[in-house]
């Protein structure tokens, strides 16, 4: 029975190869960033920012391109945890904490549970759709539009200000009270819906599914 469960070996390989590849990339990017720093284009803060950003982008690319579904889900952790750091850069501790708890702790675990309940064990390698090239072109074009508009925009120079938890709380419970309550109702409905959806209905059972 044990031999039918390949997960430990896979994890080993994942950790080893992932660790080596990531180390190589980190060293490479860090070198480039430091060179840029010493030339004078960017500051140390930016070096740190871009280091984290490149990690996020690599993770995102991996989660989109990898064939193995388990690897893809694990790769998603990189951008999701990177966002925590980005939020901290922007001075919002509460958001960073919430992001860490919900995404890192909740969503990824949920995804892994879903994987476990489907047929991933039998065939973890997925075949991608036929629109890959078209999708690539469209994604590149959208990226072009976004980047072009960012570079051509007249962005007013400003300094980010950090947001205290007290301010956030008072904003939510005064100005955004009704949306917040509606959000609570929405979550309630989503919870109920997920429950109902996941429950086995007798009349909807397919004939060959065993009880």
């Amino acid at each position: 029975m044990l031999s039918k469960v390949p997960l430990p070996q896979q994890f080993d390989r994942l950790i080893v190869t992932g660790g080596i590849v990531t180390s190589v990339f980190v060293i490479l990017i860090l070198t480039i960033l430091l060179i840029l720093k010493f030339v004078g284009f960017i500051s140390y803060t930016e070096v740190f920012f871009w280091l984290i950003s490149s990690g996020m982008i690599i993770g995102a690319l991996a989660s989109v391109f990898l064939k193995n579904i388990v690897h893809a889900v694990f790769s998603l952790l990189a951008p999701l945890l990177g966002i925590v750091a980005i939020y901290l850069f922007l001075g919002s501790e509460f958001l960073a904490l919430a992001q860490l708890l919900i995404y890192g702790g909740g969503v990824v675990i949920l995804l892994l549970f879903a994987l476990m309940m489907t047929d991933v064990q039998d065939n973890p390698v997925v075949i991608d759709g036929s629109q890959k090239p078209v999708g690539f072109i469209i994604a590149v074009l959208i990226g072009f539009v976004l980047l072009y508009s960012i570079f051509t925009a007249d962005i007013e120079i400003a300094t980010p200000s950090s947001l205290s938890l007290a301010d956030l709380g008072s904003n939510i419970f005064t100005q955004f009270l009704i949306p917040f309550l509606l959000l609570g109702i929405l979550l309630d409905i989503a919870l109920t819906g997920a429950l109902l959806n996941g429950k086995k209905h007798k009349n909807l059972q397919s004939s060959d599914s065993d009880e």
């Binding site: 078209v134 469209i138 074009l141 959208i142």
Partner: peptide, 16 residues
Amino acid sequence: PNYVLMMSVGILLFSF
């Protein structure tokens, strides 16, 4: 995916 593709083409056109 086809529907999403069509939708994204539309988004692209609008953004252009």
